[in-house]
Amino acid sequence: MTGAALTPQQQEQVVALALDLARQGRTNELVEFLEHGLPVDVTDREGNTLLMLAAYHGRAATVAALLARGADADRRNGRDQSPVAGAIFKGEDDIVRALVAAGADLDAGTPTGRAAAVLFGREHLLGDAGQTGG
């Protein structure tokens, strides 16, 4: 963050607030944090990024804004879960498409995005990406 140095407690509060903004889809407010120096791939204690939380909670506009600012579409949390698998689990078609377009790997994480689609009967979310060679 720019400006006066924040104490560790203040930094933790800023990160917690930003993570809540991502969950809630409050994109404009979240972007202000990023414009003032908050790293786009900041994580909580469980390793969840802003993108992971926005994707899981169905916040398409927030996902798009984070991807446009360089968020890592494949960054997995501490449980090896990926944003695309979370979006597939929740049935978020637009978010899955945005993550795949940004390069999300459907074969990364536990479960993989591809496995999550099969497990939850959402293969349609894979589109052309769901086709496997062989």
Rank of each mutant, 00 (worst) to 15 (best):
A101W: 01
V96A: 06
R114I: 03
Q10V: 08
Q10C: 05
R97H: 10
Q10Y: 01
D41K: 01
L106Q: 14
G58S: 11
F33H: 15
T2H: 15
M1Q: 12
E35M: 06
R45C: 01
A54S: 14
G86T: 01
G113D: 09
Q13I: 02
R76D: 09
V15Q: 04
L119D: 11
H36W: 08
Y56K: 11
D72Y: 01
V63F: 03
M52I: 07
A115H: 08
T2I: 13
G130Q: 04
G109H: 09
L38A: 10
R76I: 03
V42Q: 07
Q24K: 14
L21E: 03
S82E: 07
L19F: 01
H36C: 05
A101K: 13
L21N: 03
A18Y: 03
D94I: 00
G91A: 07
A73L: 03
G130W: 03
M1H: 14
G25C: 08
A87V: 04
A61S: 14
A98G: 02
G103L: 11
G103Q: 10
A85S: 14
V14P: 01
D107T: 14
D72A: 14
R76S: 14
A102L: 06
T27W: 02
E92K: 12
K90C: 06
S82D: 07
A129S: 13
V40H: 10
D94T: 09
Q9W: 00
V42R: 10
A117Y: 03
V118W: 07
T110H: 12
M52N: 02
G91C: 05
A117I: 03
L34F: 08
G133D: 13
L38I: 08
V118Q: 15
A102G: 08
A55R: 02
A4S: 14
E35R: 13
N77H: 06
S82W: 02
H124P: 00
D128S: 15
L51G: 06
R69P: 12
G25N: 08
T7S: 15
L99T: 08
G78S: 05
Q24F: 05
Y56F: 10
G103D: 10
A108T: 06
R45N: 13
D41Q: 04
R114V: 03
V96G: 04
T49Q: 02
T2C: 06
V100R: 02
V100S: 01
A54C: 05
A55E: 02
T62H: 10
E32R: 15
F33A: 03
D105K: 10
L17E: 15
P83E: 03
P83V: 00
G37H: 09
L30D: 06
T132E: 11
R97N: 10
A87D: 04
A55L: 02
Q10A: 15
V118L: 13
A68M: 05
A22P: 04
V100K: 00
L67T: 07
A5R: 14
L38M: 10
L19D: 02
D128G: 05
Q13Y: 00
D128T: 13
A116I: 00
L38V: 08
G121M: 00
Y56P: 00
R26N: 11
T27E: 12
P39F: 05
G37T: 08
D128H: 04
R59Q: 15
M1W: 07
R75M: 12
N77G: 09
A129M: 01
R69T: 09
T27K: 08
